[in-house]
Every structure is written in C-alpha cells, then in structure tokens.
Design a protein around this nucleic acid. Structure first.
Lengths: 209, 209
DNA sequence: GTCTATAACCCGATAGAC
DNA sequence: GTCTATCGGGTTATAGAC
C-alpha cells in the first residue's frame, strides 16, 4: 500500500537536494522527509552519494517526459519551443520567489572533488538538455543561417538559462533572468532575419517540396 | 614581520573558498592554511560567516584593481575589453584544468538560506561586474544600435561567462565555455554590423567633432 | 593578541535484534 | 526489509591561562 520505500527516499532526496543542496542535506533530513529509518536507507543505497547518483539518474530519465513534454505542450514551432522551455524555468523561479532554479546547475557548482560518477551524470543531464535544444535549432532548418553551429547555439541557450537563474536567485528578482533571455531572443531574431533576407541563402538541405 | 594575522586569515579563506567552496571549508582548514590558532580567528571575526563577508567585500573592492585592470592592460577598444575579460576567465579555467571558475558564482549557488548580508554582498559583486561591462558597451556608442539595452547586454555577458564556467567545470573541457563565448561574439559582431550598415543610424550622441 | 583544551553538537555509517 | 542504538569522527565556537 505505501509506495515503494526506495521510491519515497528518492522523492524526498530530490526535494531536499533542490531546496538545500546536496552537502547541506543530511541523511537524517532524508529519513525524516521520507518517514523511513536509517536501516532502510542503507539497505537500498550503499551510502549518501549513491542516493545522489540515483537522483541524478532520475532527472536524466525525466528530461523528456517531465521537462520537455510539459513545456512543449501546444508549441509546435521549434524556435518557440526553445523559449517555451526557458519560460518554464522562469515560471519555476517565479513560483518559488526566486529561491531555486535548476537543481543540476546548483549541484554542478557545489561539486569540488573529482567524484567521477557524479560528474558523469551531471554532464549527461546537461548533454540531454543541450541535445534536445540542438534538435530544435536543427529542425528550424534554413530559418537560421547555415553557418551557425546549432549545437553551440544550444549551449548558449543553456548558459543563458543557468546564468540567469544564478543572478535572479541572488537578487531575488526576475530582472536578470528576463534581461538575459530577452537578449538571446534578440540574437535569434536577428539570425532569422539575416537567414531569410533574400530568398533561400546558402543551405545544406534540398529545396522544399 | 609576519603580515597582519587578519590578512593571513583572509587570504587563506579566499583560496579555500575558491577551491572547496564555503560549506566544505572548515574553520580548522582556514586555521591550518593561515598558520593561526582558533583563538586568533575568533578574536578578529565573530564567526565563520563573518569571514565569508570579509572575503566577499575583498572581492568587491578588488574588481577594478585585481580583475579589470590586469585584463584590460593594453586593450583600449571597449568591445574588445569585454572579450578580454571573458578571456581572462578562460585562462583561469585553463590553468586550473577546469576545476574552478568564478568563486562568486559558486558561492551564489551554494547559498540556500536567506542570509541577507551574504546575499547583498554577492549581488554587489555581480553589480560591479555588470556595471563595468555596461560601461564598455556605453563607451562603444553608436557602434551598437541605439535600441540595444547596454545593461541587459552586460548581464548577458555575465550569464554567458557564469554558465560557460559551470558547463566547462562539469565536463572538464573548455569546449562549452568557448562555444558560449563564440556565440556572444557573433551576436555582438552582428549588432555592430547592423549598427554601422549605412552611415550613422539612430543614435543619442551628438555628431563627433 | 595568542595559545590550548574542550564543550556541545551533528555527521555518515553500522551492528544486530526482529 | 525494518527498527533502535550507537560508534567514531568532524563541526563551530568558547573558556581561560598566558
């Protein structure tokens, strides 16, 4: 009847790591939030770091169903999808009064030792995000100049989001996030204007049907 | 003969906070690194958080003499100064094999409680950086379209740097940092191209002498 | 101002009964 | 699989001699 104990621990850890960070969350915090005893946690996980690994793996698997699909619901245009996703983070910031933004980014900067398995999963999360946005820019086809590196543009969108979250969390205002996204929007608009300035410019795709 | 004890504590804390973060640095770490006893630290500072406040104030006062002036030595062009500063962070990342980037950004995301005095000093540090870069873009005058918000563009440069550092630290490669800065450069180039496309476009400054 | 010793507490992890 | 009790060690901060 009560959901899987492991599941409850995972869910509690996800909330606490997002709210307080990894290092500041104690195992006792997780146990309290999950209503579970120490013995059970150490039955499912070798240690605290393995809880983090499971959390990061959960995030990674959730990128598509939990993040992209809700953000892209009803948004067909690939370039609008990029900004719809950024708008999703804005909503998250707004609802929490700018207290927390992207949990992956926070943990990434919290990490100071090599910790190869943790780092690999953080990188996999960033890569999943970047690849999805890269897909949008690729799908935009010749609306963007062929010379523009789609993946670099996707990385740029991620740095805009993460940097915007960092600044907005610091001064508890959406101003910086909005300013950064506004500039990214202006850049993409200018790329589109230049790409379609006269007929079909240099492009790698065959002429449309 | 030995430099001021308070100074040694401050210097030790700066290094440790940058290397290991604030929470993971213990008071004992600071004492060891400074070669100082606990009694002395608590003579100069009420507690650990006050050491952090002093560190952040030191950074704030050092923005001009320790960060901007070295980065801008021999660089007169205001727009090149922006990218010279970003290049300075790249050098820092490269020299440390992408293990640490901007200490202010790391501490900003490490902060999970309200901590108003700490937050205020972090914001002051970001503001000093942004205002300096905003000054560069203002100095660029009509090389940029008048419609472009100089301060928003400066914020955008900061999110590019902070986000780039985050990603590069995570996968221990300069690739993401370079990709983000390359896109920012392309954006600024396109703004300049559009601004000077035909004679002097709409501008607020009077015609030159 | 500097030093030592230690108080008071919290941490992750484990042992072992059930 | 779950529970309790606890170990060993690290934490910030303080007391009090010098």
């Amino acid at each position: 009847m009560p959901p899987d104990t492991r599941e409850r621990l995972l869910h509690a850890a996800i909330g606490l790591f997002a709210r307080k960070g990894y290092a500041s969350t104690s195992v006792a915090d997780i146990l309290d939030a999950a209503g579970v005893n120490a013995g059970s946690l150490y039955h499912f996980f070798p240690g605290k770091q393995d809880v983090l690994l499971a959390v990061l793996e959960t995030y990674r698997q959730g990128i598509d169903p939990m993040l992209l699909q809700p953000a892209w619901d009803g948004v067909a245009d690939p370039i609008e999808r990029v900004f719809a996703l950024l708008g999703h983070y804005r909503e998250y910031l707004r609802r929490t009064e700018c207290t927390y933004g992207c949990p992956i980014g926070s943990i990434a900067l919290e990490l100071h030792e090599p910790d190869p398995p943790v780092r690999a999963l953080l990188a996999a999360n960033f890569d999943g995000w970047i690849s999805a946005i890269e897909g949008c820019f690729i799908e935009a086809g010749d609306r963007l100049p062929a010379s523009v590196d789609r993946r670099a543009l996707a990385i740029f969108a991620l740095t805009t989001m993460e940097g915007g979250v960092m600044l907005s969390r610091t001064d508890r205002t959406l101003d910086a996030f909005d300013a950064a996204v506004r500039m990214l929007r202006d850049y993409v608009d200018r790329l589109q204007a230049s790409g379609s300035s006269r007929g079909t410019p240099v492009t790698l795709s065959p002429p449309g049907p």
